[in-house]
Amino acid sequence: MITIEGAPNIMPGFDPQLAEYAMNSLEARGVEFITGAMLKSCEKDKVVYEKDGMSEEIPTLTTVWAAGVRANSIVEKSGFKTNRGKVEVCGDMRTPEYDNVFVVGDCALIMNEASGRPYPPTAQIAIQEAETAARNIKALVRGGDMETFEPNLKGTVASLGHDDAIGVIFKDTKIFGWKATFMKKVIDNRYLLKLGGPSLMLKKGKFNIFY
C-alpha cells in the first residue's frame, strides 16, 4: 500500500508525536508514505503525482481516494455564497444572506477565530452545530436570545487498525495503542447509542475491546 500526502507530514491535524507514532506503526505493517507530493491525475491503471518539481507514476490495481470532505454540489448551486464548496455561516449558524436559514455539518464552514482556520468536519463538531442551531431556531420562533456556536472539543481519536490507534482526550492527554483503541470503541458505541438507541448500539456496536 502506498499513501500519497500533499502535506509535509501525515495527519497534519494531530500532534506531531502522535502523527509520528501512526506513521511508524503503519510503516511496520508495510504501508509506504510519499509526503509533500501533489496528485496530478488518476487513471485506470496508474496515478501520477508531482514531488520536488518531478513527475512520477505509480502502477495501480486499486486506487482509494481519501482527500477530505466536500459538501454536496447542490450547496454551491443553491445561490448561497460558498467557500471551499461550503456555506460560510455566522456564529449563530445562520447564513449571512438570510436570517431564517441555518446550515450545519459538512455543508457549513465556520471559522475558529483563535486559529484563523475552519473547525474540522468531525462528527462532534457537526452534532454541536446542530444543537446550537436547534436552540437558535427555538429562540427565533419564541423571541429569545440567539447564542454563538462555541464547540466543546472532547478530543480526537483515529484508528490505525483493529488493535492500534492514536488520540487526544481531555484536551491535552495523548494516548496510543490499546488505550486509544479502547477509547475509539467507546466513542463509536456512544455515537451509535445517541443515533439509534440501545438497539442500534447492540446491533452495530464494538464490544470486544481487545480486537
Rank of each mutant, 00 (worst) to 15 (best):
5 E>R: 03
9 N>G: 08
10 I>G: 04
13 G>A: 14
13 G>I: 12
14 F>H: 09
17 Q>A: 10
22 A>H: 11
26 L>V: 09
27 E>K: 15
29 R>I: 07
29 R>P: 06
38 M>A: 14
40 K>C: 04
42 C>H: 08
43 E>P: 14
44 K>R: 10
66 A>Y: 01
68 G>Q: 14
71 A>G: 10
71 A>N: 04
71 A>K: 06
72 N>C: 15
72 N>H: 15
78 S>I: 04
82 T>F: 12
83 N>K: 15
85 G>M: 11
92 D>C: 03
93 M>K: 09
97 E>V: 11
107 C>Q: 08
109 L>S: 12
110 I>Q: 15
110 I>P: 12
117 R>D: 03
117 R>S: 09
121 P>I: 03
122 T>P: 01
127 I>G: 10
130 A>C: 01
131 E>Q: 04
137 I>M: 06
138 K>G: 04
142 R>K: 12
142 R>P: 10
143 G>S: 00
146 M>H: 05
154 K>W: 01
155 G>L: 07
157 V>R: 04
162 H>M: 15
167 G>L: 10
168 V>P: 03
174 K>M: 07
174 K>L: 06
184 K>I: 08
189 N>Q: 14
193 L>T: 05
197 G>Y: 12
207 F>N: 11
208 N>G: 07
208 N>W: 08
209 I>E: 12
